[in-house]
Amino acid sequence: MNRNAAAVVEQAEAYASLFDRVSASGRFDDASSDGPVRLATDQELLEATASVTRLIRLAEAERVKLAGEIARRSELPDDASFAKRMGATSATDLVAQVAGVPREEAGSVVRLATAVRSQEGLSGEALPAKRPCIAAALAAGRLDLTVASAMVRVLHKVQPGLAPFEVDELERQLVARIQEGYSADELLAFLRQVPSYAHPEGQDSRDEDLAAAASVSKRRLENGLTRWTLDLDPLTNGFFESALDANTSIRRFAIVDSDEAPDPTDNDRRPLNRRRVDGVHLVAKRALRSDDG
C-alpha cells in the first residue's frame, strides 16, 4: 500500500477506534439509532470531530492528486487528451462528472491540483511541485482545501514583480501560519490583505485615506472590563499584528517575568482570543520594559 493511502487507512482506523472505546466501556446502546455518537463524552466528541476532519482532509488531498493526474493527461493534444477521449470538454468537466460535484468546485480542485502536483522535466524526470509547501501541508492533512486554494490564488496574484525566491518564502510563511492556531476564517481574512503587503507600491493614495480614517477608542464596561476598538490602517495593523502574533503563538507564547525563552513543549489549548489577551499583556510589559522614560 502506498504511503498516502496508508495514511488515509490509519486515520480511518483511529476514528473507528475512538468509538470502539465507547463500546468497550459499556456505554454503547445498540438500540440507539445514533449509536456511540450520542453516548460519547464531550471530550470524545471533540476528539472524534478532529479525527474525522483530518480523515476528510487526507481523502481530499488524494482527490486533488487524482485530479492533478487527470489534468496532466488532459493537457495532451486533442487526439490524445484524456478528457476528450472520455467525452468531456476539459479536465474540469471530467472531474465534475466523475466526482459528481458542481463545475465550479471541480475547477477549484483542478487549479489547486495543477499547483501542487509534481512536475516533469524535459526528459521525464520528476520535479518538485510549483507550490511544494502547500502540497506537503495538504498531504499531511493539515490544510483545508478552501484555504489551500486561496493561498494558491494569492501567490499567483502577487507573483508579478517578485523574485522567485520571494514568492517561495511567502508561500513558506503562509503555510507556517496554519500552525499558529488561527481559524480558517482568520486565515482567509489575512490572505485577502497579502497583496497589499507584497506590493505596497501603488497603494499610497489608498493607504493615506485608510490612515486618515484609522482610530482607536476605549470604553469602560459595567462589568469592570475595558473595551478597546481598533480600526487600523494596513501599515499600523502590520506592525501590531506581527507584535501580537509573536507573543500569541502556541509555540512561542509564555508570560514570563524574566528573559528566559518559553518552553517549546508547552501546549496551550485555550481559544485564540484568550491567548491574544495574554499576548497583549506581554506586548505591553515589554514596551514598558524598553521605555527610556
Rank of each mutant, 00 (worst) to 15 (best):
F239H: 07
S242D: 04
L221M: 15
V277K: 12
P264Q: 10
S249C: 14
L272E: 14
L272H: 07
T248E: 02
D231F: 01
R275E: 02
V277P: 05
T226D: 14
R219T: 02
G279D: 06
S242R: 09
L282R: 09
T236C: 02
L282T: 08
P234R: 06
N267I: 04
T265Y: 06
R252L: 10
D266H: 02
K218S: 13
L244V: 01
R219L: 13
H281T: 11
S217G: 13
T236W: 03
D263C: 14
G238C: 01
I255R: 01
G238L: 00
A254M: 05
S242M: 13
A243W: 02
L235P: 03
G224K: 08
H281C: 06
A254D: 06
D263K: 12
S217T: 13
R219C: 05
D266P: 01
F253C: 03
N237I: 05
L230K: 06
L272T: 07
F239V: 08
L225Y: 08
K218Y: 03
P234N: 13
H281Q: 04
G279M: 07
V280Q: 00
F239A: 12
N237D: 15
S258T: 13
T229G: 04
S242W: 01
V256K: 10
P271E: 06
E241F: 11
E241V: 01
P262T: 05
D266K: 09
N223T: 04
D259M: 15
L221F: 02
G224Q: 08
R251T: 11
R220Q: 09
L225E: 11
F239L: 07
E241S: 12
S258K: 11
T236P: 04
E241D: 14
D266N: 14
L244G: 01
N273G: 03
S249H: 05
L230M: 12
D268M: 12
N273K: 10
L235H: 07
R276F: 13
T265H: 07
A246P: 12
S249A: 12
L230H: 06
V280E: 05
N273V: 08
F239N: 11
A243V: 07
P271I: 03
R251G: 09
L282W: 06
L272G: 04
L225D: 13
L282G: 01
G224Y: 03
D263Q: 14
L235M: 04
L272I: 12
A243M: 05
N267R: 14
F240S: 04
E241Y: 13
N267F: 05
L282F: 10
N273Q: 08
R275C: 07
D245A: 07
S215E: 13
S249M: 09
E241K: 09
N237K: 08
R227M: 14
G224D: 11
R275I: 04
D263S: 14
E260F: 04
V277H: 09
L244Q: 02
N223V: 09
E222P: 08
P271C: 03
P264Y: 05
D259V: 10
F253L: 00
L282V: 10
N247V: 02
P262G: 01
N247W: 00
R269S: 11
V277M: 10
K218H: 08
R276Y: 13
A243E: 04
T226K: 12
D268I: 05
N223D: 15
W228S: 07
S242I: 12
